[in-house]
């Protein structure tokens, strides 16, 4: 279990119907690649977030499959269409089975 995992999301608080908005997400996570060795020469086991999804009221915006080549503290920026008022659900899936979630509400402007 990676400790101190904290998701951060930047999303607009309100939008007009049909607006395309930019979403930025950052989650603190070491993303251990499984390639590095510790000071004794032992390989440090892989521990990464392997999947990230973003949904709006249950409809998928983006679904990212991540490999060890994603940097520490994975950052994603992408665009979404907001058809109505509702909630943006961000979900990160860790190798160890943990799921990190964040929700942002978007109101109609």
């Amino acid at each position: 279990m990676a400790s101190g995992v904290r998701p951060r999301v930047k999303a607009p608080k309100s939008a007009a119907a049909g607006d395309v908005v930019t979403l930025k997400t950052l989650i603190s996570h070491p993303m251990e690649s499984g390639q590095r060795k510790d000071s004794n020469g032992n390989t440090i086991p892989r521990s990464i977030i392997n999947r990230f999804t973003c949904e709006f009221n249950g409809t998928t915006i983006i679904d990212v499959t991540m490999e060890p080549a994603i940097s520490t503290n994975p950052y994603f920026e992408f665009e979404a269409t907001i058809p109505e008022a509702g909630d943006l659900q961000f979900t990160w899936y860790d190798d160890d089975g943990s799921v990190y979630e964040e929700t942002k509400s978007v109101a109609m402007a």
Partner: peptide, 9 residues
């Protein structure tokens, strides 16, 4: 990484 875009992208 593989990015799959959904209906609301």
């Amino acid at each position: 990484a593989t990015f799959k875009f959904g209906n609301l992208a």
